[in-house]
Simulated assay, not measured.
Amino acid sequence: MAMAEQDTDTIRASRGLEDGDPSVRLRAALAVGTAPDPRFVDTLVERCAIEPEFHVRDMLTWALTRHPASMTVPRLLDELRSERAQARSQALHTLSKIGDRQAWPAITRALLTDADDEVARSAWRAAVVLVPEGEETGLAAVLATQFGRGGHETRLSLSRALVALGEVIMPALRAAMTDPDPRVRAHAIATERLSRDPDAGFEFAIEEAKRVVALGGPGQEE
């Protein structure tokens, strides 16, 4: 009888995660996370790939973090090879929340430079969390290749990721501050200023950096 009840609960939760009403999906994800069950892992991961509502995706991620990493991480690593950008992005986001460094080898250069901005941003955040000691410099070098990319939020995400790595970013930062591309220079200068004064804010830093570049000033302040 208990097994039959469990099967009924599984079916009910699965249907809830697919309901047309976002509030129903949110409650279903909350219920699954509150009472973790290995049978839900595949369903949660699959739903992450297609869920249109941000707050529901966040609850799906939370529900996954409530399950053992030994069950969730291998399944999430499979998603990193998906052709669906949201599947890759959400898997990376969830891996960053789980924080299991065994996932590090899967954070490839291809993901860190993914053509989809959301995937790349998620990869940057995950990489900063998962990078093993001693490999920060190599990660900084790859991240620096993305200077000047995308809109405000993408640039801010990259700067935050780099700043979180600490002093190891300085060689890559200095090189980017003399790059021929003015967008790269401005972004690198803004990141350097943000690293020195996090309270200044990125918007202020990027505007100041643009002025420096426009005036033909040095890549670094003397």
Rank of each mutant, 00 (worst) to 15 (best):
E5S: 12
Q6F: 08
T8A: 13
I11Q: 11
L17E: 07
E18M: 10
D21N: 15
P22D: 04
V24P: 01
R25V: 10
R25N: 05
L26M: 11
A29E: 12
A29D: 07
A31L: 07
A31C: 04
G33L: 03
P36I: 13
P38C: 05
V41F: 08
T43W: 03
L44W: 02
R47E: 11
C48H: 01
I50Y: 00
E51V: 13
E51L: 07
P52H: 08
F54H: 14
H55C: 13
H55S: 11
R57P: 14
D58C: 06
D58Y: 08
L60Y: 04
L60M: 06
A63V: 05
T65A: 03
H67I: 10
A69R: 15
V73A: 02
L77N: 04
D78H: 12
L80Q: 12
L80M: 15
R84P: 04
R84W: 03
A85W: 15
Q86H: 08
A87I: 02
Q90F: 11
Q90L: 13
A91V: 10
T94K: 07
T94H: 13
L95K: 10
I98W: 06
G99W: 10
W104G: 12
P105T: 07
A106V: 05
I107M: 09
T108F: 03
T108A: 06
T108R: 01
L111F: 02
T113H: 13
T113E: 14
D114K: 08
D114N: 13
A115I: 11
D116T: 11
D116G: 01
D117T: 14
A120W: 04
S122F: 14
A123Y: 05
A123C: 04
A123V: 03
W124E: 09
W124R: 06
R125A: 05
V129F: 15
P132V: 14
E133H: 06
G134K: 00
F147S: 00
G148Y: 04
G150E: 04
G151D: 15
E153I: 14
T154H: 11
T154V: 15
R160W: 06
V163L: 09
E167K: 08
V168M: 02
I169L: 06
M170A: 11
A172K: 03
A172I: 03
L173I: 03
R174W: 00
A176Q: 03
P180T: 10
R183D: 12
V184I: 14
R185N: 00
R185F: 00
A186S: 04
A186R: 01
E192A: 15
R193W: 15
L194Y: 07
S195I: 09
A200G: 12
F202Y: 08
A205C: 15
I206F: 05
E207W: 07
E207F: 07
K210Y: 07
K210I: 06
R211V: 00
V212A: 00
V212I: 05
A214Q: 11
L215H: 12
G217S: 13
P218G: 13
P218T: 04
Q220C: 10
